[in-house]
């Protein structure tokens, strides 16, 4: 199962990122778990300095922006 972490301390962009990813998971019909990482210590200890950031199976895929639906789809391949 794919593990998708959304890093961000609850700002509007972070919420939007989580929603978008959940929607794309549903569209693609894949088995993935979305975890929200909201504690600042946990965010920076992963080496991320710009939020919202997305980490898929341990690899940073996006940082400092809301990813586009097109971009999200490429992570599922």
């Amino acid at each position: 199962m794919m593990k998708i972490e959304v890093l961000g301390s609850g700002c509007a962009k972070c919420k939007k990122t989580t929603e978008l990813i959940k929607k794309e998971i549903e569209n693609a019909g894949i088995d993935a778990e979305v975890i929200k990482v909201e504690k600042m210590e946990d965010i920076v200890s992963r080496g991320v300095m710009m939020t919202p950031a997305v980490i898929v199976d341990g690899e940073t895929k996006s940082a400092g922006k809301v990813p586009s639906a097109k971009e999200i789809k490429t992570w599922f391949e």
Binding site: C11, M40, T51
Partner: peptide
């Protein structure tokens, strides 16, 4: 440098660290 108030805290911690 890119800046949005959402990023000020992680940037702060990153610099200090």
């Amino acid at each position: 440098t890119p800046f949005c108030s959402c990023s000020s805290v992680p940037i702060f911690i990153g610099f200090i660290e």
